[in-house]
């Protein structure tokens, strides 16, 4: 644990000084702040912000994570020639990258809410869910990035896989669900669709935020089924369990592979 803390400490020093993390934070700050200035109410801001967050956080986390690990190749070799366990280094690098990205998002998006204030008390829960979703997505997609770059020796392949997996989760997946729903329109599909939704962290995050926004009614019958499931305590429990599994499984598999990897 002591070694892990040390690795994280120096990782933080390294990454917090990087201009990219500053740009990332500023991006969220300017975006949220201008949404407030142009949009008005905190409910509208959350809705617009949600759409950006669900796309940008996974993309930046997975691409930045992959590139970061490839660029650290020589540093990793140097560290592994020290009396240091591989798992400690892997987790140290992971936490050391996830923390600054999470902080960047939290500060960038959270500060404008503090400055402009949240209109009604009920909205506080939505803002909380929005920020929580952002944190989960960062953790999950940096973990995916670490898994991808441990699997692929070649950085071009790694970057390609990262972008494809982002496309899959952020865009293609919804299209597939829509296609399946359309193809099997005569059958009761609510349960399979809920199950499919649980498999995609971006969809999960979207639903958790939208349910708090109370616009599920706009989604018609399916929306009602969704609301019944996800707003219930069992649904909420399963959703968070799924997010937690998404946050832990890839990094656990990645760490196992990292332990056996040849450098």
């Amino acid at each position: 644990m002591k070694a892990l803390r040390k690795i994280i400490k120096y990782e933080l020093q390294n990454i917090l000084r990087s201009k990219w993390i500053l740009i990332y934070t500023l991006f969220f700050f300017l975006l949220t702040d201008s949404l407030f200035r142009f949009g008005g109410s905190s409910g509208k801001v959350v809705l617009s912000l949600m759409n950006v967050i669900l796309l940008i956080i996974p993309l930046v986390s997975v691409v930045f994570g992959v590139m970061y690990l490839y660029n650290s190749r020589e540093y990793i070799e140097l560290m592994l020639s020290q009396p240091l366990k591989r798992r400690t280094l892997f987790l140290g690098l992971y936490i050391g990258l996830t923390l600054p990205l999470t902080l960047g998002f939290l500060i960038g998006s959270g500060l404008p809410f503090l400055v402009h204030g949240v209109d009604i008390v009920a909205h506080q829960a939505i803002v909380f869910m929005l920020l929580l979703s952002g944190i989960f997505l960062t953790i999950i997609f940096v973990a995916l990035a670490f898994l991808i770059s441990t699997v692929h020796e070649d950085r071009v392949k790694g970057l390609g896989t990262a972008i494809i997996s982002w496309l899959l989760f952020a865009i293609i997946y919804d299209g597939l669900i829509l296609m399946i729903t359309y193809m099997f329109i005569d059958y009761p599909l609510e349960k399979p669709v809920i199950a499919l939704t649980l498999l995609n962290p971006i969809d999960l995050a979207r639903i958790l935020i939208m349910l708090k926004l109370d616009i599920a009614a706009l989604m018609g019958y399916t929306g009602a089924v969704f609301e019944k499931f996800f707003a219930g305590s069992l649904g909420l429990f399963i959703s968070f369990l799924s997010l937690i599994l998404w946050s832990t499984l890839p990094i656990w598999i990645g760490s196992r592979m990292f332990e056996r990897k040849d450098f």
């Binding site: 390294n14 990087s18 140097l78 020639s81 020290q82 009396p83």
Partner: peptide, 21 residues
Amino acid sequence: DVRYKAEIGYMPQIARFPENL
């Protein structure tokens, strides 16, 4: 077991370190 590495000093072919340290 990684403890034996405490007895080794290694100088790799390419020296690259965390950029901002």
